[in-house]
């Protein structure tokens, strides 16, 4: 019987995002040439929220894009029925400081796919990775620059990030098989 544990509630998420937003600005030395890219699906909502926070704090208008990495997955040939491909729309990336935003960092394969896809769109000056949850279990040498929270998990666990825009509420939950 799987157990579901609440790791972060909506207020904890709000606090984490606020801190992450200011860390982004700090690490990038301001908002000049800053571009946020959210990875489909929930990375998109998180990127949008980070953009709002940064815009308000800095009086800026940070460009934000969305990217679907399905077509760049390294396991596409193995997966059975084809996964649905979401929308990709990106602003100009040449010479920009790109911050890739995703909800959970796990094996690192999604981020690898995202890096490949970015390269097909242009040549950013610098790319950083920002994730809400780092759950360990990396299979590739990838690390996040800005992290909301770190959780220790095993392979059989699942970390669910829920966002109010899609799921009706904000929460991060750990699902552990019993």
């Amino acid at each position: 019987m799987p157990t579901r544990t609440l790791l972060l509630d909506d207020r904890a998420i709000g606090r984490a995002l606020a801190r992450m937003a200011s860390e982004i600005v700090e690490r990038c030395g301001g908002t000049d040439d800053l571009v946020l890219i959210g990875i489909q699906r929930r990375g998109v909502e998180l990127a949008e929220r980070l953009k709002q926070l940064i815009d308000r704090a800095e009086g800026a208008r940070v460009p934000v894009g969305k990217m679907d990495i399905t077509l760049y997955r390294d396991d596409l040939q193995v997966v059975g029925p084809r996964p649905v491909v979401g929308e990709t729309s990106l602003p100009n990336l040449d010479g920009k400081t790109v911050v890739i935003v995703d909800d959970v960092l796990y094996t690192g394969r999604t981020v690898r796919a995202a890096l490949d896809e970015c390269a097909d769109f242009g040549r950013p000056r610098r790319i950083l990775l920002c994730v809400l949850i780092d759950r360990g279990g990396r299979e590739l040498p990838i690390r996040a620059d800005i992290v909301g929270a770190t959780v220790n998990t095993v392979d059989s666990d699942r970390v669910d990030v829920l966002v109010r825009e899609l799921d009706g509420r904000d929460a991060v939950e750990l699902v552990r098989s019993g």
Partner: peptide, 21 residues
């Protein structure tokens, strides 16, 4: 082409996941 090139059904069962991790 994308939809047809999906792995064979027995692969789908073996793989099982379909998540983007």
């Amino acid at each position: 082409l994308y939809l047809l090139a999906g792995g064979s059904p027995d692969w789908a069962q073996a793989a099982g996941r379909g998540e983007e991790r």
